[in-house]
């Protein structure tokens, strides 16, 4: 571990100024991710700017939906979130462990780094960690890696659960950065690796997520998060599915389907949505959606099983939400 400076920010703009000023500065919020990255050597910052004191902890319901502060804790327990946004409450509850959830933050969750073994183990080459060194996962154990959106340079998956749920809710993040404020749809927050896997998000250096906005949509209330993993709790998804549905008179009026554990970012399954939209919401439609969700899958030697799991998980998630 390299020595680093530690400072606490008292206002959002102080924080943004402090991090923007130094290329080697990073934000520290809950610390459940950054502290590990620093200790294990994936990150070696010159300065950590602790934003834990910033007033970004509120969950607020207003006319334009639900605003979630970037530092709000245990958002999944909020009664309005549970009532209005079941997919988000379920995704939040399925993440990590109670101890981690007590300190982790939504902003940090969105920006956590991949759990790819080869990114985490600094003895291996990894284009995401060290551009140009190669991708060890392509030839290694790639059971947990991507079947969508990967490239010959990187096949890492994004580990967040709530990012998948937020993608299915058309949520956006509000940021404050050196160039001012902006709003970014969650889905567009992440870059696909392409030939620059080290650039994981569209955020500029120093740009800080201050809030997440979930707009009012006709499909949010009837939504569901399903997560497949190797043990019953405290494990990352092999495959996860967020679905949100607006069914009127038995016909799917609108729908969102996003997948987790299968791509470098929350993976919107648009072909699956198209297979449902405007059709009767029945077993045939759900089966067609499951099939469509696998469109474009490019499995690696050890994760062929994820393709079939995606198909089955989408069907299951749609069946589960039907009962709502």
């Amino acid at each position: 571990m390299k020595p680093f400076a530690y400072t606490r920010a008292h206002t959002v703009w102080d924080a943004v100024a402090a991090v923007s000023a130094e290329p080697g500065a990073r934000y520290l919020a809950g610390g459940t991710e950054m502290v590990n990255l620093v200790r294990e050597g994936q990150e070696s910052p010159d300065r950590l700017v602790d934003i834990g004191d910033l007033p970004l902890t509120e969950v607020r319901v207003h006319g334009r939906g639900v605003r979630i502060g970037a530092l709000a804790k245990r958002v999944h327990e909020h009664p309005e979130v549970r009532r209005r946004l079941p997919v988000l409450a379920e995704a939040g509850l399925s993440a990590a462990s109670p101890q981690v959830r007590n300190v982790a933050t939504p902003g940090g969750n969105l920006l956590q780094r991949t759990r790819c073994h080869y990114f985490r183990d600094v003895r291996f080459p990894c284009n995401r960690r060290e551009p140009g060194t190669g991708c060890a996962a392509l030839r290694g154990v790639n059971r947990n890696n991507a079947i969508f959106g990967g490239s010959e340079h990187c096949v890492a998956v994004h580990p967040s659960d709530i990012a998948v749920a937020l993608t299915a809710l058309d949520a956006v993040v509000h940021t404050h950065g050196p160039a001012g404020e902006r709003v970014i749809p969650v889905e567009e927050l992440y870059r696909l690796p392409g030939d620059e896997p080290n650039r994981e998000t569209v955020l500029d250096h120093g740009e800080l997520i201050v809030a997440i906005d979930v707009p009012p949509t006709p499909f949010a209330a009837r939504s569901h998060y399903l997560k497949l993993r190797d043990r019953a709790s405290f494990a990352f998804a092999l495959v996860s599915v967020a679905v949100a549905l607006d069914v009127r008179a038995g016909v799917t009026h609108d729908v969102r389907i996003a997948l987790g554990g299968v791509a470098p970012r929350p993976w919107r399954a648009r072909a699956a949505e198209d297979a449902l939209r405007g059709r009767r919401f029945d077993d045939d439609a759900r089966a067609a959606a499951g099939e469509a969700a696998t469109t474009g899958a490019k499995p690696l030697p050890h994760n062929e099983f994820k393709v079939e799991l995606v198909r089955r998980a989408v069907v299951r998630a749609l069946s589960e939400v039907e009962g709502r």
């Binding site: 379920e90 509850l93 399925s94 569901h224 998060y225 399903l226 997560k227 497949l228 993993r229 019953a232 709790s233 998980a313 299951r316 069946s319 589960e320 009962g323």
Partner: peptide, 16 residues
């Protein structure tokens, strides 16, 4: 839900 495969991951209410 904790009594079913997948537990709180909401994978099933008994189907399958």
């Amino acid at each position: 839900l904790r009594e079913l495969p997948g537990g709180v991951s909401n994978t099933t209410h008994g189907e399958g």
